[in-house]
Design a protein around this nucleic acid. Structure first.
Lengths: 201, 201
DNA sequence: GTCCAAATCTTGACACCGTCAAGATATTGT
DNA sequence: ACAATATCTTGACGGTGTCAAGATTTGGAC
C-alpha cells in the first residue's frame, strides 16, 4: 500500500494491470502467470510473493473488472435519478456495452473461470454491491410503476438475467446471423427489456 | 463409421466419451488430451489421428452436449403440442435442468471455452437447429396469445436469453444467498418467465 | 491371395505451464 | 546496527499441447 518503491514498486498492481492487458490482447488462453511476470519485468515466480496461485490472480483481475463495471453502471445511471425509466435503460445499455467492450474480462468474471469465488472476499463484496445497485434501480422503477410490483430482488434477477443472457449468447456467437442481419444489438436488447417493462402511462 | 474394429475400435467416439466423463468428474480444468487418451487406453498422441487439436475435441464434446440438450428439450416439449403455455413452461424447465445437471458441459458449450465455433459445422448445425426449435415453440405461443406478437426470432432470443442468463448467473454463484434462502430456483425461473408471458385469458 | 497406399497408433522430443524449495536481496521495526 | 520479514531470483519438478518419425494395421487393386 505504501507509495514508496522497494524491489519493484507496487508489483501486485503491476501484475494485475499486466494481466488485464494480456487478457484483452490474447484472450483467456494467452493468460499465463509467467507471461504476466515477464510483462511486469520480474522473474517467473515473483508473483507468488503476492498471489498464492493463478486462481488468485484471476480473482484480482475479476474484482478489478467488477469495479469497472460498477463504476460504468453508476456513471450511466446517476444523471437520471429522477427518471426511473431512463435510468433502467441507460444502466442496461451500459451493462451491454461493458460486456462487448471487455469481452474477455466479462468472460473471466462470469464464465466459471474463477472456480471458488467465495474464497475471495473482495470479489464477493464488489459483486454483492453491484447486485444491490441493480436492486435499488429496480425498486425505484417499481415505485414509479415502470416495473411490476414484486420482491425487488426477484425482479432484479429477471432484469439482470435478461441482459446477461442475451449478451452472453451474443458474445458466444449463438445469435444466428439471420437475426443479426435484421436487427441491431440495441434493438434486440431493448425489445427484450421492454418485455419486462410496464407500458408507459 | 464402420462397426468393425481395427486398432482400437471406434477410438474417435471413445475419446469423446472419455472426455465427457472426465469433464463431469473433474471439471474443465481437469480436461486434458493426455488424460482423455489414457482413459481410452491409447498413447498420449493417438488422439491426433482423429482431432487436429484440443479445441477440436472440445468442439466434439460441445456438439454432443447440444445433441443431448436438443433431445431433452424435445422430450419435454413434445407431449404438449396442443398446449402452448405448458410447452413453453416444460421446455424452459428442461433447459434449466440440463444446465444444473451438466454444469461443465453447459459451460463448455456456452462460456467461450470453444474459441472459433464457426469452424465446426456439426456444432453450428445442432446449435442452429436448437434455436429453430425454440423459435417454433415461441411462434405457437404467439399464435395462442401466450406470448406477445413480435418477430418470433426476437421473442425467442428474449425467452432463451432470460433463461440462459438466470441459470448462468446461478451457476456462477452470482445470485446472493439472501435471495436463494427465500426463493427456490423454480420460483425464480418462473417468475422471470412469467414476466414475458401474457396473463392467461 | 498379395501387395501397396492410407489410416491408425506409438515413441520420443520440444517448449510452455503452474508450482515449490532454496537462497539472495532489500525493507522495516527495534 | 541488527534481526526479522517481505520481496524477488534461480532452478527444479511433473504435467500439458503439439509435432516428427516410425511402427502397425487396414482396405482396396490386381
Amino acid at each position: 500500500m505504501s507509495l514508496k518503491k522497494y524491489h519493484h514498486g507496487d508489483l501486485k498492481n503491476a501484475l494485475i494491470q499486466a494481466g488485464i492487458k494480456i487478457l484483452a490482447k490474447e484472450g483467456i488462453g494467452g493468460l499465463s502467470l509467467r507471461k504476466v511476470a515477464q510483462k511486469a519485468g520480474v522473474s517467473h515466480s515473483a508473483p507468488y510473493a503476492h498471489f498464492p496461485d493463478k486462481q488468485s490472480l484471476i480473482a484480482a483481475i475479476s474484482t478489478e473488472g467488477f469495479k469497472q463495471l460498477y463504476a460504468e453502471l453508476d456513471i450511466a445511471v446517476s444523471p437520471y435519478s429522477n427518471n426511473p425509466r431512463r435510468q433502467l435503460a441507460e444502466g442496461a445499455w451500459a451493462y451491454v456495452q461493458f460486456a462487448i467492450n471487455n469481452t474477455d474480462t466479462f468472460n473471466i468474471m462470469f464464465s466459471g473461470v474463477l472456480e471458488k469465488e467465495k474464497d475471495y472476499p473482495a470479489f464477493v463484496e464488489i459483486s454483492r454491491k453491484t447486485f444491490e445497485r441493480v436492486v435499488d434501480v429496480v425498486r425505484v422503477c417499481q415505485e414509479a410503476g415502470v416495473l411490476r410490483p414484486a420482491p425487488p430482488e426477484m425482479m432484479a434477477i429477471s432484469v439482470w438475467g435478461q441482459l446477461h443472457g442475451i449478451v452472453s449468447l451474443m458474445l458466444e456467437g449463438q445469435i444466428p446471423h439471420t437475426v443479426l442481419d435484421r436487427f441491431s444489438v440495441r434493438e434486440i436488447v431493448f425489445f427484450a427489456l421492454n418485455q419486462l417493462i410496464s407500458p408507459p402511462q
